[in-house]
Nucleic acid binder design. Structure first.
Lengths: 206, 206
DNA sequence: ATTGTATGCGAGCGATCACTCGCGTCAGCA
DNA sequence: TGCTGACGCGAGTGATCGCTCGCATACAAT
């Protein structure tokens, strides 16, 4: 149908100190261009320019334009995941509404920390450049939710934890993203209350 | 940040019969290119080619490339809205789970009717080319949900129907889209059950 | 028939862009 | 100190693309 895939694997590995610094500068410049000029203006020449290097140098480590975008998204994605994971490591044993609330809070916090980049990634980039990474992340989260459901004290509505987890993840993910991006007239506390109500209600229904 | 806007208003209105037919052919060709070649390959020259006309003719009625894409999306969006609206006109007075279920069913049905185009629109196009139309539609649906909530018999968890409607619309919209696009291992009936459970639970929680 | 206008054509302009290549430079090692 | 490969440069290439413009044609009104 569309979108021929091209490899995104690095062309060669930086070996010396300066070349490692160069890769850093390229990714940083890529992020900067994405933020300041948008994806439409994201040309390899412009990225090289912003990084203060030559277009040729850029292609020493990145096989093509898509690879640079991917690298930028990778870093951002890791940032978000780390923030959420970090916020939850202390509370691993928790159960019930408090844990749901804390998780949602951490997610919103992580997304809000870089609204501008989130907006570009979600609304400017074609979702294709993002899809694999996103589904992989969803997959991981879904498994965590399933584990939670399996270990969950009290009755569960259904024994099909896979389906339940899928529904929860899809619903909450979108809610959090849209809450951060669209800034509806709902306070943070209120939003978290609603998320908790949604989850609790869904899990409790006969 | 990004994405300079350009007008999407028609350059001039077709007056004769043949020119109206031409506009049709252009939009149809645009849709076809989007489906068969993807957005990356969506060039005005290619659209003209597929429509069997000259690039010059294309610009008699569309001011730029974005306008053609917008026209294609407009038609598709109307198709979906019409299908959903049509499926629900008979059941306007209904309340409770049955209505929620029917609505979700109609939505999934409408989206599934054109999966390929939905995929291109959601995953290939930058969301920006879609944003206004989508938020407008969400706004309309939200108002319908609010009306439903206001007229709803039985206790409601909260009196802030605006927030409740926002949460419901955002959650269900994404669930339906992802269900159609990602084709998770969940039967249609089961999916509808889950949607009903999610809504019912959310609305019922103390 | 004639005229004015709406319509359609398609070669091609100007600009951009992803990416390359030949060459100079520099770091690290013997 | 001299050598070798890693590194970096930047002008340039080939291709694409959005869009225009001068001109031919089809239609409608008179």
């Amino acid at each position: 149908m569309a979108g021929r895939q091209q490899s995104v694997a690095p062309r060669k590995r930086p070996q010396q100190q300066r070349s490692r610094a160069m890769v850093e500068r390229i990714v940083a410049a890529g992020r900067e261009v994405l933020l300041r000029d948008g994806y439409d203006a994201f040309s390899t020449n412009r990225v090289a320019d912003r990084a203060g290097i030559s277009p040729g140098s850029l292609y020493q480590y990145f096989p093509n334009k898509a690879a640079i975008v991917a690298a930028v998204i990778d870093r951002y994605s890791d940032e978000v995941a780390d923030r959420v994971a970090g916020a939850l490591t202390d509370r691993l044993g928790e159960f019930g509404p408090a844990m749901i609330r804390d998780t949602a809070d951490a997610l919103v916090e992580a997304l809000a920390a870089n609204v501008d980049l989130l907006r570009v990634v979600m609304e400017d980039l074609p979702a294709t450049s993002n899809r694999e990474r996103r589904t992989a992340l969803e997959q991981r989260v879904r498994e965590l939710v399933m584990a939670y459901l399996a270990a969950r004290p009290g009755t569960t509505r259904s024994t099909d934890h896979a389906t339940t987890a899928w529904v929860l993840v899809m619903a909450i993910e979108n809610l959090a993203v849209r809450y951060v991006l669209d800034e509806p007239a709902i306070s943070r506390e209120r939003f978290l209350d609603e998320v908790v109500a949604l989850c609790a209600g869904y899990l409790a229904v006969a």
